[in-house]
Amino acid sequence: MNSNSGYNGLFDPMLAPGRTLDFAQQGLSNKTVGNPFSEKAKMSVRNLNVYYDNKQAIHDVSLDIKRNEVMAMIGPSGCGKSTFLRCLNRMNDTLDNCRVEGEVTLDEHNIYDRKQDVVPLRARVGIVFQKPNPFPKSIYENVAYGPKVHGLVSRRAQLDEIVEDSLRKASLWDEVKDRLFSPGTGLSGGQQQRLCIARTIAVSPEVILMDEPCSALDPIATARIEELMAELSQNFTIAIVTHSMQQAARVSNRTAYFHMGRLIEVNDTRRVFTNPEHELTEAYITGRFG
């Protein structure tokens, strides 16, 4: 192998496929390469460690998510990216065996502070899951539920306005405006996912977390959601976990690569997909292990 070569991936006979795992596990450090920090942080994570019982899932991760950016998190299965995402609105609190250490701030307030009520936190930091999960209620009620529960409205007209606005922002209004009182579960998969996004938007969050929002959708529905993310990022900060690297490349401004619970690299998405800094990032996005 040529020592000065950054491109030496193809034809080294010394490297047999069996060595893949060794390589992926070798010398992992907790130091992240690239630019994980920002002065314009909406959310800041410092020295985050997460344990499920005695097993450590996240090792000392520090990262800033900038205001109005789309931050993509990629990495092989089990690398901790979803765990990390769920720490951002304390979804992990619902798991008894999960322990979180470190600091996560939203506008410089620690969300793991004892006094922090998680209900308003989750209104400020909304989440969209992999599988669309509308409530077994009408389309209207699905969107209206959040604002009603959080006491954001006093009059019906105001609620109508929020429902329409949220459905419009989620690019669903035109498709459902004539059947707002039909069940949300009657919509197609892609429509249901956009309904869930509308439901999230309805409570005026500041950050939207998306955990593989398109993995259950067809390419057309996926394209719609991706279009939507670009529009939403004008008003919201978005963090998305995705298994589709092309999706990360298309929708995000910055990309974070996780590997075995460590944050390996954070860089501008353009850089990550053309000339990543860390060899593990390179190996993952070129399909050399997974």
Partner: peptide, 18 residues
């Protein structure tokens, strides 16, 4: 660096090089 998981991708790229 390692080979691709897809061996066909490796051989496509090797063919390109030759």
């Amino acid at each position: 660096m390692e080979r691709h998981i897809s061996q066909r991708f490796d051989s496509d790229l090797e063919a390109l090089k030759s």
